[in-house]
Design a protein around this nucleic acid. Structure first.
Length: 500
RNA sequence: GCGCCUCUAGCUCAACUGGCAGAGCAGCUGACUCUUAAUCAGCGGGUUCCGGGUUCGAGUCCCGGGGGGCGUACCA
């Protein structure tokens, strides 16, 4: 194994060390070590010790070696644990003996997990240290660590996130912050009496959103199945059945483009509340987000990765789709504005529209996105959408041609959306049929008629508000990072060079 | 999908108009009992993403392919 020709020198050397340890009766991968203290605990406890002083407290610590310095009869090693805390280990010939120190120098590399036992104290330079009496390799690394003083290339970061997590504090923080945000959302929803349910990811037809699905196949039933594009239609079935406040935080899959704000698999929160509407959902959404910001970032004033900062506290701005578009265009746009006029504005703004999907609603939304959406940086609710593009939303209670739907925009992208849900099964059927016509005409993202869902609706769904929010995008909004940095292991195309 | 940029040692990056492929860290050998990207002496390490082509000569120029980034179009 040590004479494979293609193995780089540094890997070859580490493999030889592993073999040597085994040959001399040692164990490069012991089942455990006698760890007594976390690194942060040691640093905290002995912070008050005088420089150069040793205590009589024996501690056992373990972590990954991230720094090594051999000064002859004294060796310094810094170990790092899962929280990114570092602790200095000092190994002196006087304490461990000539032989053990020589073995340490010969066998331990940067990247190894190391265990050390000894008294806690402080070095002459004032750094909390463990003066080791004993040491052991807790796990031998066979690959060298990257340079810890330089940023890993963007590609290496996502391809080898495990290395990124070792090397880059922000990577560790982001993983923990994401966990904190998700936890905060769950707790806030639980406090409001919501019940978390899990709905199918494998579906016989992908509904609940307009998007192209991934297709897969079930062998046992010889059946083509779709990965879900949204949990909406199943969550609503649950509401019909009496789970009046239902939510799900889980993955959706959309077979579409990938860029700095789109991932083919992404996490989404959807929540439905019987006897709520799009206004109650707006309040709840704001409180969920502000709560997550407070729980994880200590408040609603956010400092972003790109240096920008903004405050998401207080009430959020609200405007209407048609009103804000009219203002931006300097002309009245209403649900009655005809297609020809909308096309002129699209041409003027050089917006190209898929000819298979041209409708009043589609053009209005594209115009709005171009002229208004990308300019909204602080959280803003955009209210009241055209009916054609919102087949699951109920008609506006006072304005004909509109539906009760809002989109929440932050930093130029859509973070969340909510409806006063359509619960009339007869209207729902005609909406589905209209979608099916679009699909037949070539619109690959249009919905299909879901008969089982319509049957459920015919048992009567209570009036309800529903909301969907992208979890990845929430992290983006709170941190300023791109979507691939908020997802720990984003999809990457295979490359022959990655790993071995 | 289209356009532009990019791929060189384990990692991060150099290499002019085509002319011996280099540095820092990391590695190996040695010195040093307070280092913390230590210092000192020495030594290794390359399919320059892959496949063709032009040329006396290609990391560099041309063609094809792959990975990555940015912009643009669509979706959240």
């Amino acid at each position: 194994m040590t004479d494979e020709p293609d193995v780089p020198e540094q890997m070859r050397v580490r493999r030889e060390k592993r073999a040597r340890i085994l040959a001399s009766g040692g164990d490069p991968y012991p089942v455990g070590v006698a760890r007594t203290h976390a690194i942060a605990e040691v640093k905290r406890t002995y912070d008050g010790v005088e420089s150069g002083a040793e205590t009589e407290d024996v501690v056992g610590v373990a972590g990954r070696v991230v720094f090594l310095r051999d000064t002859g009869k004294l060796v310094f090693a810094a170990i790092q644990d899962g929280e990114g805390e570092r602790l200095q280990i000092m190994l002196s010939e006087a304490r461990v003996g000539v032989e053990s120190l020589a073995a340490f120098k010969a066998d331990v590399d940067l990247g190894d997990h190391l265990f050390a036992q000894g008294v806690a104290g402080k070095s002459k330079r004032g750094e909390v240290s463990v003066f080791a009496d004993k040491w052991a390799i807790a796990s031998k690394a066979l690959r060298p660590l990257p340079t810890l003083h330089k940023e890993l290339s963007e590609e290496s970061r996502v391809r080898q996130r495990y290395v990124d997590l070792i090397a880059r504090p922000l990577a560790r923080d982001t993983a923990r912050r994401r966990a904190g945000v998700v936890r905060s959302l769950r707790e806030s929803l639980h406090e409001r009496g919501f019940i978390e349910i899990e709905t199918p990811m494998l579906q016989t037809q992908a509904g609940g959103a307009t998007a192209r699905p991934f297709v897969t196949h079930m062998n046992a039933f010889d059946l083509d199945l779709y990965m879900r594009i949204a949990p909406e239609l199943f969550l609503k079935r649950a509401v019909v059945g009496g789970i009046e406040k239902a939510f799900e935080i889980n993955r959706n899959f959309r077979n579409e483009g990938a860029d700095s704000s789109h991932s083919p698999e992404f996490s989404m929160l959807e929540a439905y509340e019987a006897y709520g509407d799009y206004d109650t959902m707006a309040t709840m959404t704001r409180e969920l987000i502000q709560g997550a910001a407070t729980d994880v970032f200590g408040g609603t004033e956010l400092e972003l990765a790109d240096g920008a900062s903004y405050d998401i506290g207080g009430e959020w701005a609200a405007l209407t789709l048609y009103g804000s578009l009219s203002e931006a265009l300097g002309a009245d746009v209403t649900p009655q504005t005809d297609l020809a006029r909308l096309r002129q504005w699209c041409d003027a703004a050089e917006i190209s529209v898929d000819p298979k999907r041209v409708s009043h609603g589609k053009l209005v939304e594209q115009l709005w996105e171009h002229h208004v959406g990308s300019t909204l940086h602080t959280p803003t609710f955009v209210r009241d959408f055209p009916v054609e593009t919102s087949p699951l939303t109920r008609a506006h209670r006072s304005v004909p041609g509109l539906v009760e739907k809002w989109d929440l925009y932050v930093r130029g992208f859509e973070l969340a959306t909510a409806y006063s849900e359509l619960v009339d099964p007869v209207i729902q059927r005609t909406r589905f049929e209209e979608q099916a016509r679009l699909a037949a005409a070539g619109d690959e993202e249009a919905m299909r008629v879901d008969d089982d869902f319509l049957t459920a609706m015919e048992y009567a769904m209570p009036p309800a508000g529903g909301m969907g929010m992208g979890i990845d995008r929430l992290l983006m909004a709170l941190t300023g990072l791109g979507i691939r940095d908020t997802i720990l292991f984003p999809l990457v195309k295979p490359s022959d060079e990655a790993g071995a």
